[in-house]
């Protein structure tokens, strides 16, 4: 039993809107999977189905081999979650909220809880109504992390966190991954996903359009080349795989998809001063994919 989360042809419709269409996804034990997609792609819907809050229209989702809808309470013993758009109880303090979460979950690592409270600089004696947005998010994050659950399902967990806290979050997820916890992380922040995730799934309009290891995805976007010539810049725009070819004085910038050798052959014939090749960032891959929409 290698897969922790397994969805098979998962479809979820809300009236006429199809929020998820035939999604088959598998998250392996111990991996950190990033879950990307533009607003309204269906990320939260997927997470709601996984948590048993929404029932799939068709298809199944299993977590630890058990049906995520029908055996929700049982499945939840081994997972912890940060759902999006929830409202905490304004009259409880942060600490009381964490106490409640601890009681509802069962056992938690209280030493780790204290460490997290310190790391995220949360004042647990303050009432939730007096917290800023970021501090409320921290309560949810600490609540999920302190359980040390086998599976963490996080829906845009760093909304409202400042860059320092973002770092704290990253080190906490790295710790979780080192302990062998599985993490399913929906996010809009590419650098976060790039820094943390082993694999990435990209959702668009309810459809999973890409699932793969991070380094595989990089190849989806073109490599960026920046070349300075001594003298005239040759026209490389017709070579196979070249796109966005721009020339500025003696400098050419362009992207290349697929094999590099036709380009290198062409360059060998010219007087090249400098050559810079860069892998695309996840952000560029993402923008390229969703740029296609317009």
């Amino acid at each position: 039993m290698d897969a922790v989360i397994e969805t098979t042809n998962l479809t979820k419709r809300y009236g006429r809107t199809t929020a998820l269409k035939d999604c088959s996804l598998s998250v392996r034990r111990g991996e950190v999977m990033g879950f990307l997609g533009p607003n309204g792609a269906g990320k939260s819907t997927m997470i709601n189905v996984l948590l048993g809050f929404a029932r799939p229209t068709s298809g199944v989702a299993t977590i630890f081999g058990e049906n995520s809808t029908r055996r929700a309470a049982r499945v939840h013993r081994r997972l912890a979650a940060v759902p999006s758009d929830v409202t905490l109880w304004p009259n409880l303090t942060g600490g009381e909220t964490l106490d409640l979460f601890a009681n509802l979950h069962g056992a938690v690592d209280s030493a780790y809880r204290d460490l997290l409270t310190h790391r995220f600089e949360l004042d647990p004696t303050m009432k939730v109504r007096a917290y800023s947005k970021g501090n409320r998010q921290k309560v949810l994050l600490i609540g999920a992390l302190m359980t040390r659950a086998d599976l963490l399902i996080l829906d845009e967990p760093t909304t409202g966190l400042d860059p320092l806290m973002e770092q704290a979050f990253r080190s906490s997820i790295a710790e979780a991954a080192n302990r062998g916890q599985t993490v399913f992380l929906s996010s809009h922040i590419m650098s976060e996903v790039e820094a943390l995730c082993d694999r990435v799934a990209i959702l668009r309009s309810g459809e999973l359009i890409e699932v793969g290891a991070l380094h595989e995805l990089h190849h989806l976007g073109g490599r960026h080349l920046d070349v300075r010539f001594n003298g005239i810049v040759p026209d490389l725009s017709r070579l196979p795989g070249v796109a966005n070819f721009t020339v500025q004085a003696n400098r050419a910038r362009f992207e290349v998809r697929g094999a590099l050798h036709p380009i290198l052959d062409a360059l060998a014939a010219s007087d090249v001063i400098t050559l810079d090749v860069r892998e695309p960032s996840l952000e560029e891959v993402f923008l390229e994919h969703y740029g296609e929409r317009s």
Binding site: F53, A72, A80, V86, L88, L104, H105, G106
Partner: peptide, 15 residues
Amino acid sequence: AMARVDLVLMFPVGR
């Protein structure tokens, strides 16, 4: 409506 119920039901609590 405010998704407070989610905060309880995300734990091992039967609906």
